[in-house]
Simulated assay, not measured.
Amino acid sequence: MLTRVRALLAKAESTEFEAEAETFTAAAQSLMARHSIDAAMLAEGSGGRSGAEEPQVRRLSVDAPYEVPKLMLLHVVASANRCRSIWHREPGFATVLGFTPDLRAVEVLFTSLLVQAVTAMTRAGSRRDHSGRSRTRSFRQSFLTAYAQRIGERLLDATGEAVRRASAETGRDLLPVLAARNQAVDDKVARLFPTLDTFGPSAIGNREGWIAGLVAADQAVLDTRPKVPEKSS
Rank of each mutant, 00 (worst) to 15 (best):
L2Q: 12
R4V: 00
R6A: 10
E13S: 15
E18I: 03
E18T: 12
E20T: 04
T23G: 12
A28Q: 02
S36G: 00
A39F: 08
L42W: 02
L42M: 14
G45T: 12
G47M: 01
A52P: 00
A52D: 13
E53V: 02
E53Y: 03
S61G: 11
V62P: 03
D63F: 03
P65C: 14
P65I: 14
V68W: 00
P69I: 10
P69M: 12
L71C: 09
V77S: 05
A78I: 09
A78Y: 08
A80E: 07
N81H: 15
R84V: 06
S85C: 08
W87L: 11
W87T: 06
V96P: 07
G98I: 07
S112F: 08
S112I: 02
V115W: 06
R127F: 07
R127P: 09
D129V: 00
T136H: 11
F139V: 04
Q141H: 14
Q141K: 14
L155M: 13
E161H: 05
A166M: 02
A166S: 07
A166T: 06
T170Q: 13
L175T: 11
A180Q: 10
Q183N: 13
K188S: 13
V189N: 01
V189Q: 04
R191Y: 10
L192D: 14
F193T: 07
P194E: 14
A203G: 12
N206V: 03
W210E: 12
I211C: 10
V215L: 07
A216Y: 04
P229I: 02
K231T: 06
